[in-house]
């Protein structure tokens, strides 16, 4: 039912929304600005907002100090590897739960999601030891497996809510029309589920890209992704905020661009099933 919203109220809400949006965006903006300052301007008080001498020296320094490309390739490997592996397991799982649920399907889903609430440190020692024994420490494969496992519950959950929205009638119609199970999946279900699968992939890539606990603790150099790249600029010489900001910008730039262009799908993906 349409509700009448007064003009003042509309304006008020708009200002509030912009304010909150700005608040959330501010850290990224500040990092961006700082990355173009000299170390001295970066810590000057009062802080300088726009009118300082813009410099790209931080970016130049970083290129000289570390192999950005190596870290970025690792991030890409980890994000894509864990996502592809995740899809292979999550799609059939979500399919089964959405289209032939049992009494306990809802419980299983909740239980899976609840594992996300566990603090990661709780299993850090066992996993670390396991990685040593299996020779997976500082390997891409090992990290791909860990990232895949920690994001699997979210993937299953998201795909499940998408598949739930596909009317069973349509699948049954295909069954009546003589489609085999394979044809039912490839010709009817998959095309209808493409938007859902796409936004699940997107979210998972972002989560894997940003994951900083396991990627920092299970790598040293060989498999280290961009999170480790940033971290490497924070220690031991003390904090150089401008350099650190430049490193952060380089690390988040790829995902920021991807996220910017796909924000519609992302929002839809995260609220899907909630609004109907």
């Amino acid at each position: 039912m349409a509700r009448q919203v007064s003009r003042q109220r509309k304006i008020g809400m708009t200002i509030l929304a912009w304010f909150v949006g700005f608040l959330i965006f501010f850290p990224i903006l500040w990092t961006f600005l700082t990355s173009f300052k000299t170390e001295l301007t970066a810590i000057s008080i009062p802080p300088q907002f726009l009118f300082f001498d813009w410099t790209t020296e931080n970016y130049v320094n970083i290129q000289a100090q570390a192999n950005y490309f190596h870290f970025m390739m690792n991030s890409i490997y980890l994000a894509l590897g864990s996502t592809v592996l995740g899809l292979i397991f999550a799609i059939p799982a979500a399919w089964a739960m959405a289209f032939s649920p049992t009494k306990r399907t809802k419980d299983v889903l909740l239980w899976m999601l609840s594992t996300k609430m566990l603090p990661a440190v709780g299993v850090y020692i066992p996993i670390y030891l396991l990685f040593i024994n299996l020779g997976l420490l500082d390997s891409r494969l090992g990290l791909i497996i860990v990232l895949f496992l920690i994001n699997l519950p979210i993937m299953v959950w998201m795909l499940y809510t998408y598949f739930k929205e596909i009317p069973v009638d349509i699948l049954e119609a295909a069954r009546m029309d003589g489609a085999t199970l394979r044809q039912e999946i490839t010709q009817i279900l998959a095309p209808m589920a493409v938007p859902g699968i796409a936004s699940t992939v997107l979210l998972n890539v972002i989560l894997a890209w940003n994951e900083a606990f396991w990627t920092l603790n299970l790598t040293t150099s060989n498999a280290a992704p961009l999170t480790a790249f940033i971290a490497s600029f924070s220690s031991p010489q003390g904090n150089f905020y401008a350099t650190l900001s430049a490193a952060s910008m380089l690390a988040i730039a790829p995902i920021l661009i991807v996220g910017w262009f796909s924000q519609k799908q992302l929002v839809r993906g995260l609220t899907f099933g909630a609004v109907k």
Binding site: P167, I170, E172, A173, R175, M176, G178, I188
Partner: peptide, 16 residues
């Protein structure tokens, strides 16, 4: 279902 030679029309139409 496919081998029963029956065709069904659903309440929701169930079009692709």
């Amino acid at each position: 279902p496919a081998q029963r030679r029956l065709a069904m029309v659903f309440q929701s139409y169930a079009l692709y």
